[in-house]
Amino acid sequence: MFSHLAVASSLAIGDMLFYAICFIILMWLIKLVAWKPINQMMQDRADKISSDIDSAEKSRDDAAKLAKQRQDALANSRQEASSIVDSAKKQGQQQRDGILAQAQSDAQSLKENAQKDIEQERLDALSSVRNDVADLSIEIASKIIQKELSADDQKALIDSYIEGLGK
């Protein structure tokens, strides 16, 4: 069974050489065809996966940051809106008060002017009436005097005057 091992001394070298050379060629071919590209691809994939994990983490952080920003902006805008409404209300109140005060003062001044005018008018009318009465009475007096101052009348006038003195 093992007898050819004795012969192997003459067999061995050729077969060993053949196998060694064939094995080296096979290794080279496998390296060329499969080993190198597949290892390269596995390396690439490992790199891609790790970079994907990194970028996923980064985008998650970005999303969280963005959400927080939006939340802040929302809260901010709510506050702003309420402050705008408040200030508008306040301004409206102020304006109303201002307009009211203005109107009141205007009405007051108008009333005062009107009263002043009326007074002036009355005074004017009164003075003109007084002048007219004076003129009229003078005219009447002169007419009466001019007409005839009779002796009787004179006498009566004097009497009444004297009576007046006696009292």
């Binding site: 003459s10 067999l11 070298i13 050729g14 077969d15 053949f18 094995f23 060629i25 096979l26 496998i30």
Partner: peptide
């Protein structure tokens, strides 16, 4: 000048080709 074993050569070649 070397002795080769035909069985080893043939079957070895087949195995190498199959692997490749």
């Amino acid at each position: 000048g070397l002795t080769f074993n035909a069985a080893n050569i043939f079957s070895g070649l087949i195995a190498f080709v199959l692997v490749f």
